[in-house]
């Protein structure tokens, strides 16, 4: 069974199987599929002892839904488990352009359009503020504003849907 994890915007297909001791990690290296002996055992105070190919590291980790956060050698990494169905859906996604998303967390300064407005590509939809700087969000295509999710002053996280455009009519 193959599973996918996203790390730093790259996807990795991996598998896991039982070994006599511990487990085996299956992964791609170049064009080859390789296997590496791995194990992870609980250490002290919520930390873990990771063994990969005989190399031992003391790591900290935390799970949150599909996210796993790993503190390894002074750096924290985030990996996200990709559900098979979700990966399939994203591959055939045509709806992405209907949602105008926040490229970074911030707050809404002003909205330049109203629901039902016809907008053109590049037209200013709203102004958001992040890092004490204002960013103008423009329409990615011609269309009609279906809904506006936030009001000025409200804050949002990265990737929050700010404005939804009506789906484009089928040709």
């Amino acid at each position: 069974m193959q599973h996918g994890f996203k790390l730093l915007d790259a996807e990795h297909d991996i598998g896991l199987s039982r070994a006599r001791e511990g487990y085996r990690l299956h992964l791609n290296q170049g064009d080859e599929r390789i296997e590496i002996p791995v194990s992870l055992i609980q250490g002290e105070e919520g930390d873990w002892v990771l063994n990969v190919n005989g190399e031992v590291d003391h790591i900290s980790l935390a799970l949150d839904g599909d996210d796993v956060f790993i503190h390894l050698d002074g750096e924290v990494y985030q990996l996200t488990f990709e559900h098979a169905l979700q990966r399939l859906a994203e591959m055939s996604a045509g709806a992405a352009a209907d949602n105008v998303k926040a490229t970074m967390p911030g707050s809404l300064v002003s909205v330049a359009v109203a629901e039902g407005d016809h907008v053109k590509t590049g037209q200013t939809l709203l102004v958001m503020e992040s890092m004490k700087m204002e960013t103008t969000i423009v329409s990615p295509r011609d269309g009609v504003v279906q809904s506006i999710q936030f009001t000025p002053g409200q804050t949002f996280d990265k990737d929050a849907v700010l404005i939804t455009l009506e789906p484009e009519a089928e040709e």
Binding site: G15, A19, V38
Partner: peptide, 30 residues
């Protein structure tokens, strides 16, 4: 090496992956 460590940790802490691996008889794995 770091990538392998991260992927190993991700796999070993992922419930579906671990359950799946544990269901496989040792013989096959061996």
């Amino acid at each position: 090496a770091t990538l392998h460590k991260l992927l190993a940790t991700a796999a070993l802490t992922n419930r579906p992956m671990r359950d799946n691996a544990d269901l496989t008889p040792d013989l096959h794995a061996a």
